[in-house]
Write a protein that binds this DNA or RNA. Sequence first.
DNA 1: CGCTTTTGACCAGCGC
DNA 2: GCGCTGGTCAAAAGCG
Length: 105
Amino acid sequence: MDPQQPNSVMPNRMVPAIPEDGYEWRKYGQKYSRRISMNRSYFKCRNNDCSVKRKVEWDPSDPSNLRIVYDGTHNHPSPSSLKEDESSTSTANQYDLANQVLRPC
DNA sequence: CGCTTTTGACCAGCGC
DNA sequence: GCGCTGGTCAAAAGCG
């Protein structure tokens, strides 16, 4: 029936589903934009020397439409990369913002 | 205990 | 001048 979660368990806290990019983020705000009818969540990268900001927008009626916006660049390797070998020459794993959803606008 | 998360309110700039 | 939005901060509570 409804694709929601009939169970009383919700893996997510309030957001539908955020794609992990391999970095750690700390949510520091959330707001709803009636202008675009979308929810906007504000995340900040946790690092002594890395305060990158990450904005996530998604439609409350269509959590499938996720819009990720990165503000800034990481100056430290991703924690996910640290736990495992990291591509021999760090090719360009530093800025793998390959999460730019492809939206036709 | 430490850490994280959530909500509300405030501020500033801009457009008309 | 007014209204509106965007963005951030603070505090509190709960959990392992």
